[in-house]
Design a protein around this nucleic acid. Sequence first.
DNA 1: TAGATTGTTAATCGATTAACAATC
DNA 2: TAGATTGTTAATCGATTAACAATC
Lengths: 263, 263
Amino acid sequence: MSRRTRSDNSIQGIPEATIARLPLYLRALYALADRDTACVSSEELATAAGVNSAKLRKDLSHLGSYGTRGVGYDVDYLIYQVSRELGLTQDWPVIIVGAGNLGRALANYGGFATRGFRVAAMIDSDPLIIGTSIGGHRVFGPDEIERVVTRFGVMIGAITAPATSAQSVCNRLVAAGVTSILNFAPVVLTVPDGVDVRKVDLSIELQILAFHAQRRSASKAHPTAEPPAVNGCEPPSVNGKRPVTQQVTRQAHDEVTAEAIGS
Amino acid sequence: MSRRTRSDNSIQGIPEATIARLPLYLRALYALADRDTACVSSEELATAAGVNSAKLRKDLSHLGSYGTRGVGYDVDYLIYQVSRELGLTQDWPVIIVGAGNLGRALANYGGFATRGFRVAAMIDSDPLIIGTSIGGHRVFGPDEIERVVTRFGVMIGAITAPATSAQSVCNRLVAAGVTSILNFAPVVLTVPDGVDVRKVDLSIELQILAFHAQRRSASKAHPTAEPPAVNGCEPPSVNGKRPVTQQVTRQAHDEVTAEAIGS
DNA sequence: TAGATTGTTAATCGATTAACAATC
DNA sequence: TAGATTGTTAATCGATTAACAATC
């Protein structure tokens, strides 16, 4: 009657922020297990994962009561519980759409196989690539998406195709039954309810870094120069001079990350 | 006296969440500009960026009052303002450390150059690679980091090296003067105050997807089987049976994403 | 029993959202 | 002036954190 705290919290409601940190804890736990550490306190584990201990305990409490007061957490046991919560005790076939540089990098990704993820197949539209093998994985044409997904029971797809074809690729994946998508293309994908999209966007990360870098070096350099006057789209004065957008490169703000990486 | 709302909010405090969305708005704005749209309402822009309009307006209000009530936002003008805020009106030389698959993908990244980012140099420790060119960029040895950073005034570094060397690479970058780091290696980097680290971790993204995928297919499949009994590290009973951690692959939870991708 | 550390409570902080007054 | 849409306020929601009672 006291071992099953689990049901209380986790059945429907583990916060997204917590879920996003579980893989971090898992990684730290594996590192500890490799060093044959049998037991760990929230303080130690938190440090290893780069968070504070209150947050760690709160996060773990969403899964259940898997620690021992006055002692700590059993490393192997916690690995098991976190893995199970994340769904890593089963095998996940993944389909990779787009065999450009990034798609290839993904396919060669060593940790893939060992982590419970397995490349089911790669897809590309280039006739020269179709039929070849990349990292030991056969490359199929786009028309084979449905067949591959059905055949291997694929639920997870990675889109490493160009931004221009990302949405149509996405549609095909969803139509075939894929419900989880890792999107490397720099576009906002539209998907039906029940489909989960996560985005990896190199260009956005760089821009965020640039913001902070600018801040740091801005102590003096910040040009307090007044911005070009607003002219409000169309309403009043017609001769309001437009700001100099030229500085900022305009063209091609669309073919970023995905085909981006991977031409 | 009314045009400069800017100073009020933005000098010290634009929320991180807002900054992370600015690149999204910028991309949507460029798409509009490409279609020669001169003016856009918060409603339209928000839809294009995949957020709701209240959030968009709130975000933009942190930069200043750049819209016109009853009308909307001037596309070109807003592009200029957002770009400036993100620091994209200047050129950012980037150093890429690790010329594996991912590093190469990055170096070939077309959007890089057009976006205000420029590959200053690539670094790798493999003697066979040093001296060659990748995507038009010369590859140097690790000992050249300091020189390259100084010479080109590099402030941003991307770590695509193996997890095992990521921290030492990071130390070298920081010592050389790099203050913004985009880390693709699956490790928690330790950096001094004032250095900004952003993480791109494929393995974590996949695990989060797996969690949701499991949830979706769990309606019935969820094994309510009681978890192995806790045995609390070391304290009481010595014969408490350990859970079956074998299911979950144990080895190599460390060489993931970076060298991961890019062997 | 004394010492240690968890799991949880409650306070705080920040981010989202709806609603509307300001104003073009 | 009437219609439209911004910028801002205030309410709500969720996430973080410190602190401590429960308990090994």
